[in-house]
């Protein structure tokens, strides 16, 4: 009897992620959802620039590698090339989505572009070796904020879910975390809803996933998960920031 297996939507390519990095968990959740919805054959994923740049090797569906921050624009093109059949998701980090790609993110949401966005917020640039991210916390020490992020010097973190929730266009925005089993289960539920919304033609759905980066945070994997709990969640509260359809049903 099989009790546990790899989702079909994942390839056998060994991942390059560091020990304790939660990208692997989120990749798996996305792949499980693709399997459960039976959409692998018509799904096209857009990989970012950043740690997940090689996500194109890890998902079995068709994949496109986008320029830094441009994944929502690329996804817009792919979706509009065949809106009836294409299921399109982007998988982006905080530098990609909340810094260099802010305009593409905001306007895809404002258009209610019928795509699914998986947003990994780990408060740091991982691939380039631990620089300050738009989501780095005040006081957080990184390679480019060696004395701690000073808001007087470089401003405050960008809260994407809160910001996008002001847009009439966005359909569904939820922030989740993958630092413990209960939260991982909630994260999967949110990701599934974000894909289901697209299948139902509801529009722009973004799941922000608070994730860990033990290597660049300079912590053990275990300590890193604790840091999400103690530092990140208080600054980035979990929950649903917008669910237009649910709000309509309630009304």
């Amino acid at each position: 009897m099989t009790v546990f297996e790899k989702p079909h939507a994942m390839t056998d390519v060994p991942m390059h992620y560091c020990p304790g990095c939660t990208h692997g968990i989120v990749h798996r959740l996305v792949a499980e959802v693709i399997d459960e919805l039976g959409i692998e054959g018509r799904t096209i994923g857009i990989a970012p620039v950043g740690c997940a740049v090689m996500a194109y090797d890890y998902f079995n569906c068709d994949m496109i590698e986008a320029a830094h921050g441009r994944a929502p624009a690329v996804a817009t093109g792919v979706k509009r090339a065949d809106p009836e059949n294409h299921v399109v998701f982007t998988y982006q980090g905080d530098g990609d989505l909340a810094s260099i790609g802010t305009a593409e993110t905001v306007h895809a949401a404002a258009r209610n572009e019928n795509i699914t966005v998986i947003f990994i917020n780990n408060a740091i640039y991982g691939m380039t070796g631990g620089q300050m991210a738009p989501t780095s916390l005040p006081g957080q020490v990184t390679q480019t904020s060696p004395y701690g992020r000073d808001p007087k010097l470089c401003g405050y973190p960008v809260k994407i879910c809160e910001m996008l929730s002001t847009l009439d266009g966005a359909e569904y925005l939820e922030r989740v975390a993958v630092n413990n089993v209960a939260n991982i289960r909630k994260a999967k539920k949110a990701i599934k809803k974000a894909f289901q919304n697209q299948l139902d033609g509801k529009g722009f759905s973004l799941v922000e996933v608070l994730s860990s980066c033990p290597t660049n945070w300079g912590m053990t994997p275990q300590k890193a998960l604790q840091w999400i709990d103690e530092k990140m969640i208080p600054y980035y509260p979990l929950g649903v920031y917008k669910d237009r359809s649910a709000a309509k049903e309630e009304a």
Binding site: A66, A67, A73, V74, T76, G77
Partner: peptide
């Protein structure tokens, strides 16, 4: 954004 939308359709 426009050229990247082009990139998406071209990829498709």
């Amino acid at each position: 954004a426009a050229i990247n939308m082009v990139y998406g359709v071209a990829a498709a």
